[in-house]
Design a protein around this nucleic acid. Structure first.
Lengths: 113, 113
DNA sequence: GCTCTATATTACTCCATTCGAATATTCCTA
DNA sequence: TAGGAATATTCGAATGGAGTAATATAGAGC
């Protein structure tokens, strides 16, 4: 049972473990977006984005509703946003030591979010 | 740059995306433990645990110090524990819909942590 | 220095994830 | 109902992650 909980957590983290999927969740932070809008904002292949959305859907991190031709996605639980926010604190605290990007980091604080 | 940051985040989540590594972090929740102690508590192969520790070390999620023959591990940032706690909230909210374990869930509330 | 214990690393195999390309599905509109 | 737009799914190739077994390293004590 303990173990099932850990598998569950691991699954969620697995779903979060891709730059594109993180980007998607961050884009959905302030409200719904259609798949098309996501594709445009991400500037990536339609099929690729759609596959990542499928992962997020499978793990139930996002909800989706059809509106005519389009499909609108949203973050299913604000707690996920809280997790991302907490991780942002972590990232700010440790990015410098973790990567060799000190210079760029200092120069582009605004890029951090 | 945005992208490098997201890759960094994804890497951290990737490191968290395994039940054994989550178990390790939870075991380290209340203080340092030696690799041997972790192996014993986890009841897993030495090499296997050591590899998972290597992942956590590589991503800098844990700190380690040598004491004679042994190596003691600790969580490098409490924020990670907070994240795991948040995930528990998420778990409680969604497990029923997410997994097919309704019955056990209701019967073993105390096992939840 | 030799041996024992604790831990890490390597090699190999198996399974999962990722991407692009092509194809399928669904819904709208003429 | 045919065509077009939006989105999803499938396939194959490449890459990456996980587990086991075997081997290597490092420190302690004799």
């Amino acid at each position: 049972m303990q173990d099932a909980l850990r598998r569950f957590k691991a699954d969620i983290f697995q779903a979060l473990a891709h730059p594109t999927r993180i980007a998607i969740l961050e884009l959905l932070r302030d409200g719904d977006l259609s798949a098309g809008a996501l594709i445009e904002k991400l500037g990536m292949e339609q099929a690729n984005v759609s596959q990542h959305l499928a992962v997020l859907r499978a793990k139930q991190l996002v909800a989706h509703r059809k509106v005519g031709n389009q499909v609108f996605y949203s973050v299913r639980d604000r707690v996920l946003i809280d997790v991302l926010d907490l991780m942002r604190i972590y990232f700010h605290a440790h990015l410098k030591e973790s990567l060799g990007m000190l210079d760029e980091l200092d120069k582009t604080q605004e890029a951090l979010r």
